[in-house]
């Protein structure tokens, strides 16, 4: 692509068609309602409104995809997309931490579903293993011990709601513009030997990237272990091992 970033941005801004603007404005309304919902007690009605806004937003996306006859993969893709957005909204707006974590799980699982539809089963499976399997379980593990009956006021009070709404709207505008200008890859009909191909590409063309990522993870692991260890020096113990006299007192 020979177009610079700036002209890309101006192209997106020039694409102010109703098709793009309506979802952006609806998204802004959703964000507004979401923030009110987070600030006050009665959330259910407002959450429903947020959901409605997002359904309308996705409906506009659906027009992009549904230009031809509706097929099962397209319907599934739409359903997965909606589910993932609902999950994300749930993650942000549920009071109970465990419900929020479940919302995130739903979002990630439906993203994996979209990967599956794009004939990328390996990515789908590894997304589930890494995010839903490991990350959220650790997350839940922590949450179970941090049960609080009332949410902290810092968590629900917003410092600058107007800025957040406009920032969110700008982000939506950019995503919408990008989606409507960039070519969307077609869903491959059938992809045999995908995992083998992926492995070959990863360990030939992208060998350095894979190795560097692996090294980084190793360093992170070593760092986590060394940070997590308690300092041995100066530790006061009352355990059975303290019965052993210190080295200076022991006979040689």
């Amino acid at each position: 692509m020979n177009v610079s970033l700036l002209s890309d941005a101006t192209t997106i801004l020039l694409l102010a068609t109703p098709e793009i603007l309506i979802p952006v404005i609806l998204g802004g309304v959703s964000l507004f309602l979401l923030q009110i919902g987070m600030g006050q007690a009665q959330t259910k009605f407002k959450l429903a409104l947020v959901g409605l806004g997002i359904v309308l937003l996705l409906g506009s996306f659906a027009f992009h995809f549904m230009d031809a006859a509706p097929t099962l993969p397209k319907a599934l893709q739409l359903a997965f997309g909606m589910l993932s957005v609902f999950g994300a909204v749930g993650l942000l707006s549920f009071r109970e931490p465990i419900h929020a974590a479940l919302g995130f799980a739903v979002a990630v699982l439906s993203t994996a579903g979209i990967f599956l539809l794009q004939a990328a089963p390996f990515i789908a499976a590894s997304t589930i293993i890494v995010y839903v399997g490991a990350t959220i379980i650790i997350f839940l593990f922590v949450l179970m011990f941090a049960q609080s009956t009332h949410p902290q006021i810092q968590d629900v009070r917003l410092t600058s709601p107007i800025l957040a709404i406009f920032g969110g709207m700008l982000l939506l505008l950019m995503i919408q513009g990008a989606i409507s200008t960039l070519p969307i890859a077609a869903i491959p009909e059938r992809a045999p030997q995908r995992v083998v191909d992926l492995g070959r590409v990863m360990y030939t063309d992208y060998l350095y990237a894979v190795e560097i990522a692996g090294t980084l993870l190793l360093i992170a692991t070593v760092g986590a272990i060394s940070l997590g260890q308690k300092k041995r020096v100066g530790r006061t113990t009352t355990s059975a091992s303290s019965l052993t006299p210190p080295a200076s007192q022991r006979p040689l």
Partner: peptide, 18 residues
């Protein structure tokens, strides 16, 4: 003919803790 059979199993078994 699922190309990721074992990986699918690992993914689902990691969910079963839920």
């Amino acid at each position: 003919g699922v190309d990721i059979g074992i990986l699918f199993l690992l993914a689902i078994s990691s969910l079963s803790a839920y």
